[in-house]
Simulated scan of single mutants.
Amino acid sequence: MDSAFDAYSIYEMLEHYDVSAIIDLNPRRSKQFVYNEMTINVDGVPICPIGRKMLDWGVEKKRYRRKWRCPAAVGKWECPTPCSNSTYGRTFYTSTKDNPRLFPRVKRGSKEWKQRYSLRTGVERCIKRQKVDYHLEDSRGRSSRHWNIRSYCIGMCQHADAWMKEAEKVNYSGLHPLIKSLLSL
């Protein structure tokens, strides 16, 4: 879903049904978020006190939480004012149970997130094709039977379009001769 669905109640419902939420945070609601006195950016990454993103250090499977480490302690940056005296550096934990909106199961910006998010655009293109190209909403039918028949017909047309696109890739070699003759008209 896109950022228009960025509401805490939607995340709670998805968690209740054991569904991974792939929803962008809505930047209009706020640019940064605060969680346990730590600033969180729009991607759900904690920001250290000097303004740098903390590094993702994996997931603790037993406790169902994600671990973040200070970038200075890992050696990525020099820190003028270290926030921890420990040689390991400051660590911060985030959990989906605490706040499913800020910390979904799948980390925002990760490879898995991008793969799942790209599927959403395919669904949106499909719905656009039904509504705009095939004029689904222009119908004047009132009964559910009429809408079902129209939807099934549009689905068959979309399926036929997909077949034709695949056939174009191989120069129509797998098509029936009758269909080939109709294409040449």
Score class of each variant (00 low, 15 high):
136 L>S: 02
26 N>M: 03
48 C>E: 14
142 R>P: 09
135 H>T: 06
176 H>G: 00
123 V>R: 01
128 K>A: 15
48 C>S: 15
97 K>L: 07
179 I>L: 06
169 K>F: 08
158 Q>M: 14
132 V>F: 10
179 I>S: 01
80 P>D: 09
41 N>F: 11
61 K>V: 15
177 P>C: 08
129 R>C: 09
136 L>I: 07
103 F>S: 13
122 G>R: 08
23 I>G: 01
145 R>C: 07
58 G>F: 14
47 I>T: 12
162 A>P: 00
179 I>Q: 00
141 G>P: 03
79 C>Y: 08
107 K>N: 05
47 I>G: 11
152 Y>A: 13
155 G>T: 10
82 P>D: 03
176 H>K: 09
18 D>N: 05
93 Y>S: 10
16 H>S: 06
78 E>A: 07
153 C>L: 15
40 I>R: 09
50 I>V: 15
129 R>W: 03
41 N>V: 12
180 K>F: 03
84 S>Y: 05
37 E>A: 13
110 S>G: 07
108 R>T: 12
32 Q>D: 07
168 E>N: 00
57 W>P: 00
120 R>I: 10
120 R>M: 04
10 I>E: 02
8 Y>F: 06
16 H>W: 01
61 K>C: 09
95 S>R: 04
116 R>P: 00
134 Y>D: 07
167 A>H: 02
86 S>N: 10
80 P>M: 05
37 E>S: 13
131 K>R: 11
173 S>R: 08
185 L>D: 02
181 S>W: 02
81 T>G: 01
16 H>K: 09
172 Y>D: 00
45 V>G: 08
32 Q>H: 06
163 W>Y: 08
5 F>H: 12
24 D>P: 00
162 A>H: 13
100 P>I: 10
151 S>F: 13
86 S>I: 08
37 E>R: 12
172 Y>A: 01
152 Y>M: 11
123 V>W: 04
87 T>V: 14
108 R>G: 10
155 G>K: 05
176 H>A: 04
26 N>C: 05
2 D>S: 04
51 G>A: 10
163 W>N: 11
51 G>H: 08
82 P>I: 06
7 A>W: 05
52 R>D: 13
77 W>N: 06
11 Y>E: 04
74 V>H: 12
185 L>F: 02
168 E>Q: 02
106 V>E: 04
135 H>R: 15
183 L>Y: 04
112 E>F: 01
33 F>W: 15
93 Y>K: 11
116 R>G: 04
169 K>W: 07
17 Y>P: 00
184 S>W: 01
55 L>I: 15
20 S>A: 13
182 L>H: 01
185 L>G: 08
4 A>Y: 01
91 T>H: 11
97 K>T: 09
102 L>E: 06
23 I>F: 00
106 V>W: 03
130 Q>W: 15
123 V>E: 01
154 I>S: 11
185 L>N: 03
133 D>S: 12
109 G>I: 11
140 R>T: 10
71 P>V: 10
178 L>M: 02
164 M>Y: 03
166 E>P: 00
119 L>Q: 07
185 L>M: 01
164 M>H: 05
57 W>H: 13
23 I>K: 00
36 N>E: 14
104 P>T: 11
107 K>E: 09
98 D>F: 00
159 H>L: 15
53 K>Q: 14
29 R>I: 11
120 R>N: 03
166 E>F: 07
11 Y>C: 05
2 D>N: 09
139 S>Q: 01
55 L>Q: 14
162 A>N: 13
10 I>D: 02
